Amino acid sequence: MRNVLGFNSRKSVSSVRNIIMSQSDESPVFSKPRLVLKKVLARNVNHGSRLMVNKNIASEFKGLDPFLNLDHFSVTHPVGFTDHPHRGFETVTYMLEGGLVHQDFIGNKGTIRAGEVQWMSAGRGIIHSEMPAGVGTHTGVQLWINLSKKDKMIEPSYQDLLKENIPRAAKDGVEVKVIAGEALGVKSETHTRTPAMFFDFKLHPQAQVHHNIPETWNSFVYVLEGEGVFGSPSSSPIGPSNVVFLGLGDGVSVWNKSSEPLRFLLIAGEPLNEPVAKYGPFVMSTQSEIEQAMEDFQYCKNGFENGRHWRSQ
């Protein structure tokens, strides 16, 4: 896929706690609440008659270490994401509607459907395809997460999270699917090499949620449906397809003051604080490593050996 989180031994997120408040606008006592730094509307970009990817916002993610990019995609059979390589980072694909069939050059094949996740660590190299699972329109989001320099050349691996295995919780008008991390007293067993959290929140009308985030982590929100007030109860509502970049702090507050449900993704992660070099589907630490990745892919070596004869079905 073009450019489109669980616990880590380096830092447990078990200390992260979240609080559901009453219907008032009184916030919990965050010593440093996270406020909105900016919002970016992801506009549709048509890459073909049946493939549409919301505006590539990779440039907006500069400085949001460890995150690299987010895409909200829509594909219609038979068009999809044909054979392409990756090296040096992870992709998290979360299906919202329909399904996506995945194949790779080491023999893995499977389908993720609405409400399911594929967490792929590309490591030293993968060539794969992601195609719509049947007729109709298939939509989802894909997040790119950087790997640390020590992990960039690991063997590729996958975590497929089926819908029934993703923990859920609900309280006082707030529902959450815990893809990675811990929320409303439930936690995910998803393993993340970079400490991170990934939640799908739904707030019913007049509900609110206040969630703690480790103070030094970077975080953002992607609004899927409805309008939400983020950071401060006096802020203006923000609607669908907006990426909301949050400032540093120890927690974020969200209110749904509308008469319709609000659904959003809340994503946060610990910065790697390492150099980043990017070129297309490769994310490494130096320009020379990017050049080596290009050469390895071209000549099918150093992790790309199976690419010499493999083509997806």
Rank of each mutant, 00 (worst) to 15 (best):
T91C: 05
G63I: 03
F73W: 14
T76I: 15
Y94P: 01
P78Y: 07
F73T: 10
V79T: 14
N69Q: 10
F89R: 01
S74R: 14
P85R: 12
G98E: 08
K62Q: 12
H102G: 12
G99L: 04
R87H: 10
H86M: 08
F73I: 10
G98F: 06
L100Q: 05
F89N: 00
L70Q: 03
G63N: 09
R87F: 10
S74D: 11
P66I: 08
F89Y: 04
H86V: 11
F81W: 06
Y94T: 00
V79Y: 03
F73Y: 14
H72M: 09
V92L: 14
F67M: 07
F67V: 04
M95V: 15
L70D: 04
F67Q: 05
F89C: 02
V79H: 11
L100N: 05
H84N: 12
L68T: 03
R87S: 04
K62V: 11
L68S: 09
E97K: 14
D65W: 04
Y94N: 02
D65E: 11
L68E: 01
F67D: 13
K62R: 13
V75F: 13
M95I: 15
R87N: 02
G80M: 04
L96Q: 11
V79E: 15
T91Q: 08
V101E: 05
T93R: 01
H72W: 06
D71Y: 07
Y94V: 01
H72I: 09
V92K: 04
S74H: 10
